[in-house]
Design a protein around this nucleic acid. Sequence first.
DNA 1: CGGGATCCGTAAAGATACTG
DNA 2: CAGTATCTTTACGGATCCCG
Lengths: 230, 230
Amino acid sequence: MNQAGYAQFCPVSMAAEVLCTRWTILLLRELLFGSTRFNDLRRGLARMSPALLSQRLKELEAEGIVRRAPGASGVLEYHLTPAGEALRPIVEAMGFWGQRWIDSELSLQKLDAQLLMWDMRRRLNPAPMPRRRCTIQFQYPERPETERLWWLVVEPGKPVDLCGIDPGFEVDLYVASDLRTMTAIWMGQDTVRAALGADRLKLIGDRELAAQMQTWLGLSSLAYAARPAA
Amino acid sequence: MNQAGYAQFCPVSMAAEVLCTRWTILLLRELLFGSTRFNDLRRGLARMSPALLSQRLKELEAEGIVRRAPGASGVLEYHLTPAGEALRPIVEAMGFWGQRWIDSELSLQKLDAQLLMWDMRRRLNPAPMPRRRCTIQFQYPERPETERLWWLVVEPGKPVDLCGIDPGFEVDLYVASDLRTMTAIWMGQDTVRAALGADRLKLIGDRELAAQMQTWLGLSSLAYAARPAA
DNA sequence: CGGGATCCGTAAAGATACTG
DNA sequence: CAGTATCTTTACGGATCCCG
């Protein structure tokens, strides 16, 4: 973006020089939503090359938005500084605008199972689930093999685990739908109940877990801006 | 920015595809601040090529953010649609963030007399001025010739006029300073009184007009987010 | 496996000139 | 006034490789 940027003293211009380069807003979204490690960031930014991710992280560090430091385990972690945390209203405002003014059909043409599952892992609410390990398998039968099957493993006291290959545990609940339906539920444009009723979603297994799905699933943090169906 | 964009259903991603291309945020700033014509937009975007400006306007029109139509005088005008007006919180949030977190020294290294004067023309408040035509000349003696002298002509009932060449009227007030000082005043980081006291600003002419300068000058619409001097 | 660096082809943007 | 046309420079994407 730079070769001296826009050369304007206006603070909008100064901010745009920092924020409006390719992938930067999405990288900040991942950091604001809690990812801290290089390869976790990559999971939310599937089509961003690692070279560019590395470059952007360095730029954000130089601009005082990101701090790079080894975490508890000794592995490098990237955290937002106060200046970076202060960007949250901007990223949220962009999300709300997108929800309100972009045709949801356009969004639903850009399905991404990895991004959806990764975001679900992050927002899943274990509170209404049984106090034991629960394994939930998601099936998207129409997708290519690499993104057809996913497992979420929820264990009390541990972070939720997302697997793309069978973790070997007995499955408590099977969730089957097309990826579009699950994405629409996640974005607040559809509901578990409506999708079940219209046969776009099937739940097989633990009755309790199935009944509570709308609750433990949570929703995208941007879902509450959703436009009511036209 | 595109070759299929980011390929993510997330609304932040959808918004970023629209907003985070070079010059787009600054173009929206100009439209949000009230410019409607191609060459007026160019005045606020000095280093943007007309080819790219034309391209961006077409893109924004295709995205439903800008409407292109002939104005009352028959000349083409660009206006924001409701979807475009809804972007105001985002652009404002970026301005506030820039004011709060970018070192003002960095901003003041990107002085731009044309941008400053054009913004002053837009925000000038004629209310405290005499009820007759007033001509104010600004001098930036250290600048290259093309941006050294500016005239603001304020006439009751007419839009404020900005000239880069002598309009020929008798000057009511001469304002002389370095461009940095006037920009800092405009951004709320300095005041007329302080600059006068420190001899960074000189006012010659109508006493009344000079005394009221801080009032009729107005300030950048982003000035109230200014960080107090360290 | 985490965290990158390198190389090369393509796409976007800048500079400048020109036009209906 | 409201843009095109053309040419050069820069940024980005994608594949591959490296190293602790």
